[in-house]
């Protein structure tokens, strides 16, 4: 039995005529300790998929099984790193992490909780900024706080929704390594949603493209057989890497072209006479 299973998931928004199917027939299974990346265009329903898995929304049809149990609401077992950091701006870095830790371990004493906070803030090397508020930090630092907050709750599974999307290339690379380091330490299950194929190949064991919505569905999976730890600079010369990368990009390009050809359908405007307003305001 898989660790996380999505069976025939459909998700629609709206009702009646305005009903649009965002996700259709999504099937996915992730094994324990695996690092899976889902790659897709923007607007293809990635965030909807993430929210289904972390329990913020419920599928219209189908079921999400986590360790064999249907997902009902959010859980501390599944930590989430949001796309836009979602730190509470009125709390300092330490307080943001502390709030999460306190909810996750309600029985621990204040001293123990503070130790956990200090450890995780140290892990993302933000100890000097522990008393700063999010708006005093750079984007990369904020995302590191979000990482620390999600991990400090010691979730069994980490769900990342384009966590590095808004960062510059250098910060991005550093944070990728940091996340991999943390993941490698105790081999938690991880699901990464991204729009960057290279990021997916560098970090994940498996890459699954999400065909763009509406009616988004998962494409065929690509296994990444590159040994860890992976070296970014060497990766560029790795034949396996090149092959996989080209295959995925080709696949995505094909989808893109398909979409384009669909979009090239001409829309004929109805022949309408402009209304005359003459004499209306007399």
């Amino acid at each position: 039995m898989a660790y996380l299973e999505l069976n025939n998931i459909y998700k629609t928004y709206g009702q009646g005529e305005h009903e649009t199917e965002v996700l259709s027939n999504i099937n996915l299974s992730i094994e324990e300790g695996e690092f899976v990346a889902i790659v897709g265009f923007t607007g293809s329903g990635k965030t909807t998929l993430v929210n289904l898995i972390n329990g913020l929304i419920e599928p219209t049809k189908g079921e999400v099984l986590f360790k064999g149990q249907p997902v009902q609401g959010t859980s501390h077992e599944r930590g989430v790193i949001f796309q836009n950091y979602s730190l509470l701006p009125w709390l300092t870095v330490g307080q943001n992490v502390y709030m999460a830790v306190k909810e996750a371990f309600p029985k621990k004493s204040k001293k123990e909780l503070n130790e956990i906070v200090a450890n995780y803030v140290e892990m993302v090397s933000l100890t000097p900024a522990i008393n700063k508020r999010p708006n005093e930090l750079s984007g990369g630092m904020r995302q590191r706080v979000a990482v620390a907050r999600a991990l400090a709750m010691k979730p069994e599974m980490i769900i990342m929704d384009e966590p590095l999307g808004a960062l510059d290339a250098l910060t991005r690379g550093n944070l990728q390594d940091e996340i991999l380091n943390i993941w490698g330490k105790d081999k938690r299950t991880a699901l990464l949603i991204t729009n960057d194929v290279d990021e997916g190949i560098y970090m994940a064991d498996r890459i699954i493209p999400l065909r763009p919505g509406p009616n988004a569905t998962l494409g065929p999976e690509f296994k990444i057989d590159i040994e860890r730890p992976r070296d970014k600079t060497e990766l560029n010369d790795n034949a396996n890497f090149k092959e996989t990368r080209n295959a995925i990009i080709e696949y995505l390009m094909d989808i893109g072209n398909e979409r384009k050809s669909e979009a090239q359908e001409a829309f004929v405007l109805p022949e309408l006479e402009p209304k005359s307003f003459v004499g209306r305001f007399k």
């Binding site: 609401g73 989430v80 909810e103």
Partner: peptide, 26 residues
């Protein structure tokens, strides 16, 4: 986003009001 954070952290109703809703509407 803040409401989602409160949900993901599973804050109780009081915590949610005093730690998230009130500061944000201050």
């Amino acid at each position: 986003d803040y409401i989602n954070v409160a949900k993901v952290l599973k804050l109780g109703p009081f915590q949610k009001i005093f730690k998230v809703v009130l500061p944000s509407s201050l």
